[in-house]
């Protein structure tokens, strides 16, 4: 699950060539001015809008600052301490972890199952793939607005459950009524409802990734396993799954990173409510920093989010993805 960021290329292009500068006129040589023309524009834009702001926030995160006027009210690490002690911010971090864990334990197997399914010779599988991936192209705003309508009390989801529920053997009408609740209004379930919607939007992405991974597995291997007497499940377990490992780990990586970035969908459906039950780190930042004119505090929260995401990403890269790639991202 992820927001707007795109999948990461983790593989390094074939054997990195040494950066030693070749001689003038040889392939691989360009003069410094030429290189500057090539690289500097991108470097300047990137540095100015991506790197500079977060460096800048180091400066104002140690002030109490309403965003206007000079930085005068020095508070040291006070903003950081306040954020880390804030039950709301802690809850926001926790919610992001919940989404990450649910993504890994539910969304990933679901996407994998569908990828395996669409890897069969199934008539219309191209169409299925197109349709399953389609929600990924919709904006989170649209997704949120539509699902908010569907999930409202007495909305379509409720009607469907009321109609279909009692048809399931062993499920009584009363049990169905007991099960019904305001899906986005009950602090106990709102986060799970949002997770459901996030899954609706993003499982297609992971399915497509995994499908591409599956199609990269030579069919001879599976045939060989079949000849050795392995059943379909065993073949999957011992041949497909290990070979799919790198793709799965990348999907997991995207899900974890994405879980920490969720904003749009939450903002348009619940705004972090009810009573903060769906607050994510991003909605917390906008609500408590921007919305309350506390830019110094917001700067501290930004840095904390940055640090949490970076540590997690680097940790994952180092200990999980390392097997797959040499010298991956950083």
């Amino acid at each position: 699950m992820q927001t707007q960021s795109q999948p990461t290329r983790v593989s390094q292009p074939s054997a990195p060539t040494p950066s030693r500068r070749p001689l003038r006129g040889a392939p691989g040589y360009a003069s410094w001015p030429t290189l500057a023309v090539l690289v500097l524009p991108a470097l300047v834009v990137y540095g100015l809008f991506v790197i500079y702001p977060i460096v800048q926030s180091l400066r104002f995160s140690v002030y109490n600052w309403n965003g206007l006027g000079p930085l005068t009210d020095w508070v040291g690490l006070g903003n950081f301490v306040e954020a880390l002690n804030s039950p709301d911010f802690r809850a926001a971090i926790f919610h992001c972890f919940v989404i990450a864990v649910l993504s890994l334990t539910l969304q990933l197997p679901f996407a994998l199952a569908l990828a395996v399914l669409l890897n069969q010779k199934l008539a219309g599988r191209g169409l299925f793939r197109t349709m399953f991936f389609a929600p990924y192209v919709l904006s989170e705003v649209v997704t949120g607005v539509v699902w908010r309508q569907l999930l409202r009390p007495d909305g379509m989801v409720d009607r469907v459950i009321e109609t279909v529920g009692p048809l399931i053997p062993g499920v009584s009408e009363a049990a169905v009524q007991e099960f019904m609740r305001p899906w986005l209004g009950d602090p106990g379930v709102a986060l799970y409802s949002l997770f459901f919607v996030l899954t609706w939007k993003y499982f297609g992405l992971h399915m497509v990734l995994l499908l591409a991974g599956l199609q990269g597995i030579p069919s001879e291997l599976k045939e060989a396993a079949a000849i050795d007497g392995a059943g379909p499940w065993q073949a999957f377990r011992h041949v497909t799954l290990p070979l799919l490992g790198p793709t799965i780990r990348i999907s997991m990586f995207l899900m974890i990173i994405g879980s920490f970035h969720v904003f749009d969908l939450v903002w348009v459906t619940t705004r972090g409510g009810p009573v903060g039950a769906t607050q994510t780190m991003a909605t917390y930042l906008i609500d408590f920093g921007f919305g309350r004119n506390r830019f110094g505090y917001g700067g501290a929260v930004s840095i904390l989010i940055f640090a949490i995401s970076m540590v997690l990403a680097l940790f994952y890269q180092r200990f999980v993805l390392r097997r797959d790639v040499e010298g991956a991202l950083t």
Binding site: P153, P182, L184, G185, P187, A190, P274, V275
Partner: peptide, 13 residues
């Protein structure tokens, strides 16, 4: 009301 924590002020819900 049911779901009051998710209710806004205006609007059908």
């Amino acid at each position: 009301q049911e779901g009051f924590l998710a209710s806004t002020w205006p609007g059908p819900d």
